[in-house]
Design a binder for these strands. Structure first.
Lengths: 142, 142
DNA sequence: CAAAAAGGTTGACTTTGTCAACTAAATATT
DNA sequence: AATATTTAGTTGACAAAGTCAACCTTTTTG
């Protein structure tokens, strides 16, 4: 059993950061996609050729939800699908050009927002923040 | 304009932690409340006597959504409301005993989950994680 | 080959969240 | 003091987000 103040600190941060991300995330408004959709597009940007299965595994989304989402993205021309050579059941998904453009816009908006958040900090604090983020990720990604 | 790799690092962490919280948050399943509801109850636990207005300000929720949520909580006996002495429009909200019990259960479940996450780490890593969390919170809460 | 498992689709549905119009109380304006 | 404006909360109607289970097809396993 972990020390209970450690548990409290851990939980406190998670609440804090849930709130913080909620504030940030609201700026995703005025975009044509919601958070889950943005995550899917982002994943396809990062991993062209991923399958719906990959997406739902990596992002923890529902089967039917992803299926419909992808279908809509294809209809909108953002994503294209092509049958996998190895497995006749799966479709490889990748961003089509309009999807790239959309992602570029999302990236730009997100970068501007990140910039605003970081620019408010003194250089030393910014370093402290980014080092701490790297530390967390390094500890938790195992 | 912030250094672009700083922006990338910041955004990278936010994506990473969104995923991480998503994984954690799914354990809130098998609970009778969803994330927003849990946040509201948590806030009432922390700040007895808060108004619906306080809740929607602090948590960024919709007026009508909060109103209905509170109404349901009252019906379920989790929350009690009493008219404010100073302002006839507002109702002071606080957890009733069954709400306290519910919160205790949520706290216990969340603590167990946190414990599982932390117990998987070596003491040195755990310290590194918690220090990093404290650093982030201290930098960002200004 | 037959049976079981896995990827994906679809219809029906629930949950979650939003919007705008409204009531009543408080505050500001003349 | 009377009127206008603003604010807390409520409500109906609705939209968005997400879930569930049945189903078809292809692949894998026994």
């Amino acid at each position: 059993m972990t020390n209970s103040t450690e548990i409290d600190r851990f939980r406190h941060f998670n609440r804090f950061y849930t709130n913080y991300l909620g504030l940030l995330g609201n700026h995703l408004y005025e975009s044509p996609v919601n958070l889950s959709e943005a995550r899917v597009l982002f994943e396809l940007d990062r991993c062209p050729g991923a399958s719906a299965r990959d997406l739902r595994d990596r992002l923890g989304l529902d089967k039917g939800y992803v299926s419909r989402m992808v279908k809509r993205f294809v209809r909108q021309g953002w994503v294209e699908e092509r049958a996998s050579a190895e497995d006749g059941r799966v479709k490889e998904l990748r961003l089509a050009q309009p999807g790239d453009a959309l992602m570029a816009g999302l990236h730009r908006a997100a970068a501007e927002q990140a910039d605003r958040a970081l620019a408010a900090l003194a250089p030393a604090e910014r370093k402290r923040l980014l080092d701490a983020m790297a530390a967390i990720e390094s500890v938790l990604s195992r």
